[in-house]
Design a binder for these strands. Structure first.
Length: 475
RNA sequence: GGUCCCAUCGUCUAGCGGUUAGGACGCCGGCCUCUCACGUCGGUAACGCGGGUUCGAUUCCCGCUGGGACCA
């Protein structure tokens, strides 16, 4: 068996979205699994809608996700001679014929066909031996002479047998009257030229497949195998759009998702391997098989993506995670984190269990990184009450005398103060938490205090005491 | 409207004629506990409908219904 060759062929008319990423991923996995090649081709034939910035965005997205390609990117806009040759060949062999029907004439034919109940919308007016033929001297488009009877059948790697009665396929255009090739022609010629063995693409191309097979045949070539991936749907089972989250996968980078996590999540959307949920890249390559892909469309479940990302995030060591966070803060928020790497690692260690993305992690680190606190009103109202003041005062006195500032020592002090005052630990810990973090939830308070450090901690506790008093005296 | 595709918990899925229909996310509850989270234990929840085929259908076949894609 010759080595497998797959391709991903996006058109640069927009950003790469999650559906496209999944297609690219499956193409890459198939190729890698069989030690074949993964080709990247940019379908920029639509000059009006194609923009270079989209091409750059697509390449950037693929690099970010490590969807590395082995060949390309090839640009269709640079391959016109190839298409011209193919067109000439098709005309010479009689597989394609000139059509001089005008738009108005075509419209008339369509209406007539509709009235007659015929399914084909083009009358084959210009087809030799069928209609009156083309008008000489007029600009002509080129159409494929589709066989008049039979069926075009292919065996989809995911969906199985798919057949189209030839009556359903009109004599489609392969070159416009200005000589420019159409999508169907270009795709088939490129796939053939690049020796693609497996065309893996979205479901929305199923209807194009018989036409492309016809072109292959007309060119005397053996068609490749096809695999049509089901669509990725939004939460409302409609087409994925901005309302469902990101239009561009790069937005997931901005939100602090790991590329491997997004890839893992997308791999599991439509594909599975037993009960396994988490896969390394190597496992994906090893275990991926196109016939394990589910034929039905799948809904993009953002909550599950969060969970997957959280798994990846927690698998990082504190040191690695601190590095990830530094890089993220620099890239997305253009800022440097406070403190040295050891301190940052310690900080991140306290936060990692409750974050699912780097952005979430960074946002939750405010009370470590910024000197000014943002207080949650409800928390202040509930916990920084007059009764808490004496407890806090007692704690502050003890803490000031503490020789070393670390979590075990802090815990000992807290317990001692609570016991002295005959209070549960929570009665002390909760007001402290609000005073030093501004809110009711945080990592363990001793760790928080240790990371915040003596100076900021004591200052915040003193402010906290004042806040208790201020509330007791509304005047 | 035509053609094509699809159909198991809310979601992602396992299942490939005989299962108490399994796992994961989410959700709910217990435990842990200074709060939240993590962890852990438990719970909730599905074979769209109707015909066949078969001793037996979630599973195979045919309709229907419902989604979706493409073309018009």
């Amino acid at each position: 068996m010759p080595p497998m060759r797959t391709r991903f062929a996006p058109s640069p008319t927009g950003a790469l979205h999650v559906g496209g990423v999944r297609t690219a991923l499956f193409c890459q996995l198939m190729a890698r699994h069989s030690e074949g090649s993964f080709v990247l081709r940019i379908e920029d034939t639509d000059r009006k809608r194609s923009e270079e910035r989209f091409t750059e965005g697509i390449l950037e997205s693929m690099r970010w996700l490590a969807l590395d390609w082995d060949e390309g990117p090839h640009f269709q806009s640079q391959r016109t001679p190839l298409y011209r040759d193919a067109i000439e060949k098709l005309v010479a062999s009689g597989a394609a014929y000139r059509c001089t029907c005008t738009a108005e004439e075509l419209q008339t034919h369509r209406e007539a066909a509709k009235a007659a109940g015929t399914r084909i919308s083009y009358s084959r007016h210009c087809r030799p031996g069928v209609g009156p033929g083309p008008v000489e001297g007029k600009p002509a488009s080129l159409r494929i002479a589709v066989p008049l009877e039979g069926e075009v059948v292919f065996y989809d790697e995911i969906k199985g047998r798919i057949g189209f009665a030839v009556e359903e396929i009109e004599d489609f255009v392969i070159a416009r009257s200005d000589g420019s090739p159409t999508y169907q022609l270009v795709v088939a010629v490129d796939d053939a030229d690049m020796a693609i063995t497996h065309v893996v693409r979205g479901d929305d191309h199923v209807n194009n497949t018989p036409k492309q097979i016809l072109i292959y045949r007309a060119l005397g070539l053996e068609p490749p195998k096809f695999a049509h991936l089901p669509m990725v749907l939004g939460a409302d089972k409609g087409r994925l759009s901005k309302r469902h989250g990101a239009a561009s996968v790069l937005e997931y980078r901005e939100l602090g998702y790991y590329p491997d996590a997004l890839v893992n999540f997308l791999a599991r959307l439509g594909w599975s391997h037993g009960d396994q949920e988490l896969f390394t890249r190597a496992e994906l390559v090893e275990k991926f098989a196109i016939d394990d892909v589910n034929p039905s469309a799948g809904v993009f479940n953002a909550e599950k993506l969060d969970w997957v990302n959280a798994q990846y995030l927690r698998a990082r060591t504190p040191e690695e995670l601190a590095g990830d966070l530094r890089e993220f803060a620099r890239r997305e928020e253009n800022r440097e984190l406070r403190g040295d790497e050891a301190w940052q690692s310690r900080m991140v260690e306290t936060l990692r269990e409750r974050a699912s993305t780097l952005k979430g992690l960074l946002d939750s680190a405010r009370y470590y990184l910024d000197e000014d606190l943002i207080f949650e009103e409800a928390a202040v109202k509930k916990l920084l009450v007059p009764e808490a003041a004496p407890l806090l005062d007692a704690l502050i006195a003890r803490l000031e005398a503490l020789p070393t500032w670390d979590a075990p020592g802090l815990e000992e002090t807290f317990r001692a103060v609570a016991e002295e005052r005959d209070q549960k630990l929570g009665k002390l810990a909760q007001p402290v938490r609000v005073a030093v973090t501004g809110g009711k939830q945080s990592p363990g308070i001793f760790d928080v205090l240790e990371v915040i450090g003596r100076d900021w901690s004591l200052a915040r506790l003193r402010t906290g005491v004042e806040m208790c008093g201020a509330r007791s005296d509304p005047g």
